[in-house]
Amino acid sequence: MSISREEIATTARLARIRLRDDEIDDVTSRIASILDMVDQMQAIDTSAVEPMSNSLDAAQVLRSDKVDEPGDKIAAREALMAGAPAQQDGLFLVPKVIE
């Protein structure tokens, strides 16, 4: 198997995807079959090929450094925060993060 049960569990935890214990084996074998296919592709010699970082054959267009903001920033904030489950004094509230 190209990936272990433990690696699947760790990756799921990092991605905040909840997997039940009885699901892990099934997910592991399915992801392993994808990785096996990747292994087949790895066998091809690509040393002369430039790595592709985007499927579009183009370069990024850059924006000039100008501030573009709404006139009423407080009203804009209210609109943007309307969907937040909890807020106070213009802050989003989230379950306490302790460091």
Binding site: D68, E69, A76, L80, G90
Partner: peptide, 21 residues
Amino acid sequence: KSKIFSGSSTAFGAPPNTQAN
């Protein structure tokens, strides 16, 4: 003056979340 990927201002000290689009 503006952020790396948006037109929001980067000025320090504005009321919270008024420079977040």
